[in-house]
Structures are given as C-alpha cells and as structure tokens.
Simulated scan of single mutants.
Amino acid sequence: MKLIENLAALMERSGDNPYSLARKVKARYGTSPTQPTLARILDGTSREPRRSSLQPVADYYGVSVDALFDDDLTRRGEGAPVSTPSRGDSLSIPVTDAWGSMGLGAPQPEHEAIVSGLTVSMDWVRHSLPRISHPSRLAVLTAFGRSMEPTLEDGDTMLVDRGVSEIREDGIFVIALDDELYVKRVQRRLPDKAIIIKSDNPHYEPMVVENGDRNKLEILGRVVWVWKGIKL
C-alpha cells in the first residue's frame, strides 16, 4: 500500500517515529492522528484511514493528502517538513521561469529555475485561498497565448497550487500532455472517465483524452488565482 510506504519513507527522512510525529504535528497544527492511530496505519491495521486524520500529517510534510497515496511521491523527492508562517506573517511564493501555453502547447521544461519571489500576507492566503493543498505548494507562473481569453490573457500572472496532482473537480489546470505544457479548463466525462480539455476562447476546439490514454496526461497544478493587468 503506497500510503504505508510513503509515510514510512517520509518519517525516516525526518527522523520520526509515530510518537514523535504525532507530538510535532499536534504542536504545530493543534490536531494530529494519535500515536496508536499512526502505528495502526503503518502496520496496515487501519486500511482506510480518514482523510481528516491524514490532513495534518500531509500539511506537516508539505504535500496534499492525495500525494500520500502517490506512487511517485518519494521518488520525486517531495515531503520535507515545512514551516508554515503564523497569522500576520508573510509568505514568499516562488516565481519560476516555466510558463504555460494557452495555445498550441509549449515543450515541457526539463528543469525549472526560481527567478524571484512574490510576497503576500498569510492573512490574505487564508482569506482568499482557503482550499489550497498547502501554502508551501504555491508557485507563480506566467500564462502565454490567447486560447483562454477572456478568463486568462496573454501575460497574466497565475498562482498555481502544485499540490494538486489529480482532477477531483473541474477547473483550470496546468497540465502536461504528450510532453507539452498547457493551461486549460479540464472537465471529467463521467460515463467513460475521459478527460475533456477545453479553451474558454470559442475559436479553439476542445481536446479529449480517452480513459485508455490517461498516462499521456499529467496534472501539474491547479490555477487558483490570476492577477490581471490592464494592457494600454
């Protein structure tokens, strides 16, 4: 079970055991699975732990709850304990040199570099972005192209929650499809589990990823906020 493997690997990386992890998480967030609960998860006794129990642990490691079940979590090197700013503090969000095409797609970069930071208050984050996976998973990307107009315009600055790696609800996502990077509206087609990739600009045709081709599609994050400038 990947949850057990990932939790064990994350705890080993941080030098924790069920007792110390429960104590640290409770001290930081005020709530945590108890040491016996964590022990039951790790030994496989608790086969379907509640997501609400796992959320404080996921927050502590700076990942989403979904990522705890992800085959690639530890292989990607994610999951270091994070420091969450307290109320009134500021948060520096990394600005990367990656950019998302809203047109025909752009080659997915092999590496990304952090070129600067965008500082916002944690009070703003809590008020404006209450449903993000974790503040540490936010990143700033620039949108290029016109296929998402009027929602997104060429050059708009986007806040992306990179802790989202699955489509649990429809929205605008940064995706990689056949090694090309896109920013698109993504919808699930429930009868056959296909994925519909749409542009808000009606001049662009939608794309459909059939269920059997889902391995070609990678969810890199969900767009949660857009700063729109006025072009003169």
Rank of each mutant, 00 (worst) to 15 (best):
K2A: 11
L3I: 12
E5H: 10
A9H: 09
L10G: 02
L10Y: 06
M11P: 06
E12M: 09
R13H: 08
S14F: 08
S14E: 12
G15C: 07
R23D: 14
K26S: 15
A27F: 13
A27S: 14
R28L: 14
Y29P: 01
Y29M: 02
Q35G: 03
I41G: 00
G44D: 05
P49F: 03
S53A: 15
L54A: 03
Q55C: 03
Y60K: 01
Y60S: 06
Y61Q: 10
G62K: 01
D66S: 14
D66N: 15
D66T: 13
D70L: 05
D71R: 13
D72W: 10
D72E: 15
P85R: 02
P85W: 08
R87V: 12
S90M: 08
P94C: 04
W99S: 07
W99Y: 09
G100A: 14
G100S: 07
S101I: 01
M102P: 06
M102K: 07
G103Y: 01
L104G: 14
G105Y: 02
V115S: 11
V115P: 10
S116W: 11
T119C: 07
D123R: 14
P130S: 12
S133F: 09
R137Y: 09
L138P: 04
L138C: 08
R146H: 13
R146D: 15
S147A: 14
S147I: 00
E149D: 11
E149T: 11
E153A: 09
T157P: 00
T157W: 07
M158Q: 02
L159P: 07
R162D: 08
E166G: 04
F173I: 03
F173W: 00
F173T: 00
I175M: 00
A176W: 08
D179T: 04
E180S: 04
L181C: 02
V183F: 04
V183S: 06
V186C: 09
K193S: 10
I196M: 13
P202Q: 01
Y204F: 15
Y204E: 00
E205P: 03
V209S: 05
G212N: 11
D213T: 09
L217H: 02
V223H: 03
V224A: 11
W225K: 14
W227P: 07
W227K: 11
I230P: 00
